[in-house]
């Protein structure tokens, strides 16, 4: 299909249950936001995967450039002190 005829692409985010965050689950085509929500409901929540849906038109996303991923992400690789793993936790704390 030519780009003028196909529906725009939308990214879908589903919250699986209360308290959790919305997670990207995939994308789909829809002519408008309402239809995108309904399509997401039918495509991504028919097996009870969620209780809340966000959609955003893919064109509105800004993504990092994969070509500069070395400079973007490599520098964090050797900063292990940024992970809070150097504390001795008391035994009473079970769920950290």
């Amino acid at each position: 299909m030519s780009s003028t005829k196909s529906w725009p692409l939308w990214e879908v985010f589903i919250r699986s249950k209360k308290g959790l965050n919305h997670k990207h689950v995939g994308s789909l085509h829809a002519s408008d936001a309402d239809m995108a929500i309904e399509n997401a409901r039918d495509v991504y929540t028919r097996r009870q995967e969620g209780i809340s849906i966000w959609v955003v038109e893919s064109i509105n996303l800004t993504a990092s450039d994969p070509k500069i991923k070395d400079s973007m992400f490599e520098p964090a690789a050797d900063k292990i002190y940024r992970h809070p793993t150097f504390y001795n936790l008391p035994d009473e704390l079970k769920h950290m």
Binding site: L28, H29, N39, D42, V43, R46
Partner: peptide, 11 residues
């Protein structure tokens, strides 16, 4: 006509 509506109708 499109996959999404195909699924919607069968739902």
């Amino acid at each position: 006509p499109v996959l999404e509506q195909d699924i919607a109708l069968t739902n």
